[in-house]
Design a protein around this nucleic acid. Sequence first.
DNA 1: AAGTTCCA
DNA 2: CGAA
Length: 217
Amino acid sequence: MTLDLFDTEELSDNRQQQLAQDAVVLRAFATPYVAQLLPQLEAIQQASPFRHLVTPGGFRMSVAMTCCGALGWTSDRRGYRYSAIDPDSGRRWPAMPDVFLQLAQAAAAQAGFDGFLPDACLINRYQPGTRLSLHQDKDEQDYDAPIVSVSLGIPAMFLFGGHERSDKAARVPLFHGDVVVWGGVDRLRYHGVLPLKEAEHPLLGGQRINLTFRKAA
DNA sequence: AAGTTCCA
DNA sequence: CGAA
């Protein structure tokens, strides 16, 4: 597995950064969608507010989460699962807005994954100090579909590891509008986010919102 | 188990 | 709200 990382200094905004064979960073790909995304985000969190999930080990996650789409990812003491019902509201998750779907499909196609039809979008809210430790996305039934991850707001340092938790992870800075796509042979690679530094974004304030699109069923 | 802490 |  090669990790041909460009030096950060060499990156231009529209330059694609190859992480590996089937993983890529699309710099600022989401920028044209942001004006339409933000009002939809507001509506989603009104219906299904951000909450801090608990892992099966009993730990409260520092990242606050909500979801949209036919299925949403949740965790509690019993384990991880996808559910059609938001356990907090008792109702279905908010529908996936068209602009979310359009962005996810366009990014997937740009990365070489045509026909991506996500049925779940996990929405993570990071504040300074918040992190997400190294993990695999393996609760989905279809590993043929890629993962599409959209970064909004303040920067974060993304960790992209290997197929073993102990594999050394590449560090990739992610900024507002960046989209990471991974699938194929890289679909189950460990990934995470280092604790966020204090920062301010003109549109989103002192927070980072991450949209992660998956085909769960 | 998507977390925390300790140790070499 | 249980033991992977």
